[in-house]
């Protein structure tokens, strides 16, 4: 039960973090869309960058969560490498 509780707390912290990012993006889009036209790194605009970032950050947070909660898991080794490979290919895609 104690692992459940601590997992739940970590989960809620990460959830709140993501909610702020996603909410921030949506509000920015709704009320100040001009900010998204600004050109960012690589001459690519902020609309594209923020979209890609939200996807990559979701994956990073989920990996952080998986890493922190690993204590109560079983048979970890095979899985974490696999997830990591996906993370790398994700980075390339962005």
């Amino acid at each position: 039960m104690s692992t459940n509780r601590s997992n739940q707390r970590i989960g809620l912290v990460l959830f709140t973090l993501y909610l702020l990012l996603y909410g921030g993006f949506v509000l920015l889009m709704a009320f100040d869309a001009e900010q998204l036209q600004v050109t960012g790194p690589g001459q690519v605009n902020m609309a594209v960058w923020s979209g890609f970032s939200l996807i990559v950050v979701a994956l990073v947070l989920s990996l952080v969560y998986g890493w922190v909660c690993r204590s109560d898991g079983h048979a970890e080794a095979a899985g974490s490498t696999q997830a990591h490979d996906d993370a790398v290919s994700q980075g390339d895609g962005a």
Partner: peptide, 25 residues
């Protein structure tokens, strides 16, 4: 089989789906 597997399969799901969604653009 258990909660840890539920969590880990969700992470794999997010990685796969996220990667695909980057490609959609």
């Amino acid at each position: 089989k258990d909660e840890a597997s539920a969590r880990k399969s969700t992470i794999v799901g997010i990685a796969t789906i996220g990667f695909f969604y980057v490609l959609t653009l």
